[in-house]
């Protein structure tokens, strides 16, 4: 069902959230060898809703970071449905800086309903943690590839998404806010989520057309193989770039996102 118009955006949302959809454990198992998970932000605690560690990708040592939703209800609860707290974002940043030190490429896997809107998360600086990640990621001197595999909602997704290449699985979504939250804010009615999906532009193909996403990865029985191929192709290209060029490339990529109208007289000034 590649760019099939009969699949509505809301269908994609349902697919992106499907409980039988692969989770980060499956992607790690399929794509990386010898993965070791590392823990903790060195400040307060380990946030299990983010998995971070090192492993081999085609014999290249890489750092892998991603959201963990879990598969059973017990796991969902334990991993807070993939909604990370500041500690999770700080753990991510710690491992990204470690990757930079040892010149390891970083691959992030995005699948989250959003950053956790809880009391402890707020008290411990959710906003500051996300802001810090966005700033620091923009200047990392190693290749960064982000893949949205399920739901990429809000700042909680972007906090590990400032990458040289942003890829999406064909049935994943990437949005400013969950369609329910969006409908609730704009129309005061979260039941209008399917309608919200029609105007939000959250599907992989729409976002690729808008220039916000680099490549859409087809799913189906060859999903893991397709992911492997695309990541390998992009990584090989990025690994040829110098550390400074990598940081500059990433900066420029986000710098041009969002065209504005400029009065003629400004340009003449």
């Amino acid at each position: 069902m590649s760019n099939d118009k009969r699949v509505t955006p809301y269908d994609r949302v349902k697919l992106a959230r499907d409980k039988d959809r692969p989770g980060i454990e499956d992607y790690i198992e399929a794509l990386f060898d010898g993965f070791m998970e590392f823990h903790g932000d060195r400040l307060f605690r380990d946030d299990p809703s983010i998995v971070a560690g090192i492993g081999y990708f085609h014999k290249i040592p890489v750092t892998v970071i991603g959201h963990r939703k879990g598969k059973t209800l017990e796991e969902h609860m334990a991993y807070n449905f993939g909604m990370a707290s500041p500690e999770g974002y700080r753990k991510s940043l710690r491992l990204m800086k470690q990757a930079e030190k040892f010149n390891r490429p970083i691959i992030t896997i995005i699948d989250t309903p959003g950053a956790y809107p809880g009391m402890e998360a707020e008290a411990n600086g959710q906003a500051a943690a996300i802001a810090e990640n966005l700033a620091e990621m923009s200047a990392l001197k190693v290749p960064v590839i982000a893949i949205v595999t399920g739901e990429g909602n809000s700042g909680g997704a972007l906090a590990i998404g400032v990458a040289n290449k942003v890829l999406m699985l064909e049935n994943s979504i990437y949005c400013i806010l969950s369609p329910e939250g969006f409908a609730s804010i704009l129309w005061k009615d979260s039941n209008r989520a399917p309608e919200a999906c029609e105007v939000m532009r959250i599907t992989a193909h729409e976002l690729q057309e808008l220039g916000l996403v680099d490549e859409v990865i087809p799913e189906g029985s060859r999903l893991f193989k397709n992911m492997d191929n695309v990541i390998y192709k992009e990584l090989k290209k990025l690994m040829k770039m110098s550390p400074d060029k990598l940081a500059k490339d990433r900066y420029n990529k986000f710098r041009v996102m969002g065209e504005v109208f400029e009065p003629k007289k400004n340009r003449e000034e």
Binding site: A135, S154, L177
Partner: peptide, 22 residues
């Protein structure tokens, strides 16, 4: 965020943060 600008609005977070960092 400016809801009507969707993901473009989200990307302003990384754009401004990167410029401030520089």
């Amino acid at each position: 965020a400016r809801m009507q600008e969707g993901l473009f609005s989200l990307m302003q977070m990384s754009k401004t943060s990167a410029a401030i960092k520089r």
